[in-house]
């Protein structure tokens, strides 16, 4: 059986909200090391995945590997019944056809129980090669959200050009064109207060507009803004986002979720004509 106790319902709510518009249903793979998930969207353009490590839960028990088929819209409904600061207990018996949730208020004065029916999903698992990326960009997640929103006002795709001078995001459309250049900033990990503003609290003292860029080779990649905007739904889970890119391969966009794990998206680039 699986029994996992998570201190903050907000983490699970946030993860489901950041995936449910990309993936309708998928298997949660549970093992003694944690809970993971991987699924592509219907058009095979974007892959969403997450990992919640066993150590990140207050208590965690998984006696044998379980594959729990869930429909995200159902999960989203159930999790709306939990308050952000509720404790969540997830429980599934071996070979069960339901997944049980218990939401406990922090002062233990209210206990709610819900269950969702599990699905039998024959989902394929994709092998993602371990790779070193030529460019790794780290910026505050709220800045990334604003950037994607701003680019979307003009165009449908964004070109990311990473070079020695910095990383430039540019777009164009019917009304005109726009670009934003970020120069490498070491202040991204600087916890001292400065004039650049700060992140939303949390660890790292992220500068609001700082951008750290590690570059091995120049990278130029065109990406769909529709998908990038979808990925930014994970921004509330993390102070910063890491965008890893190489030429002509899928970009990886990762949001670390506290100490418990991460949510990671892959997006296939636009192909040049």
């Amino acid at each position: 059986m699986l029994e996992a106790r998570l201190l903050q319902a907000s983490i699970l709510k946030g993860i489901v909200e950041s995936v449910k518009d990309l993936v309708r249903e998928a298997n949660f793979d549970c093992s003694d090391s944690g809970i993971s998930f991987q699924a592509m969207d219907e058009s095979n353009v974007a892959l969403s995945s997450f990992l919640l490590r066993a150590e990140g839960f207050e208590t965690y028990r998984c006696d044998r590997n379980l594959s729990l088929g869930v429909r995200f819209s159902s999960l989203s409904k159930i999790l709306k019944c939990a308050n952000n600061d509720d404790i969540v207990v997830i429980r599934a018996e071996d070979d069960a056809d339901v997944l049980n949730f218990v939401f406990e208020s922090p002062d233990e004065s209210k206990i709610s129980e819900y269950q969702i029916k599990l699905l039998d999903i024959d989902g394929e698992h994709l092998s993602i090669p371990e790779q070193e990326f030529d460019c790794v960009i780290k910026m505050s997640s709220s800045e990334f959200s604003k950037l994607c929103r701003d680019m979307t006002l003009l165009g449908q795709t964004v070109v990311i050009d990473a070079a020695k001078e910095g990383v430039k995001f540019s777009t164009y459309g019917d009304i005109g064109a726009g670009s934003v250049l970020y120069k490498h900033s070491s202040s991204i990990d600087d916890s001292s207060s400065g004039s650049g503003g700060k992140g939303r609290g949390g660890s790292g003292g992220m500068s609001a507009r700082g951008c750290s860029i590690e570059l091995r080779e120049p990278v130029s990649l065109e990406l769909s803004l529709k998908y990038l905007n979808n990925f930014t739904k994970a921004a509330p889970l993390s102070d910063y986002v890491v965008i890893s890119a190489s030429n002509e391969i899928p970009v990886m966009v990762q949001f670390d979720v506290g100490d418990i794990g991460y949510i990671r998206y892959y997006l296939a680039p636009q192909i040049k004509d």
């Binding site: 892959l47 994709l126 795709t157 065109e222 899928p250 296939a268 636009q270 004509d273």
Partner: peptide, 14 residues
């Protein structure tokens, strides 16, 4: 803009 690429040309089923 180019054509949207697909992930299954990069990632193969296990």
């Amino acid at each position: 803009a180019g054509l949207q690429g697909r992930l299954d040309t990069f990632f193969k089923p296990v």
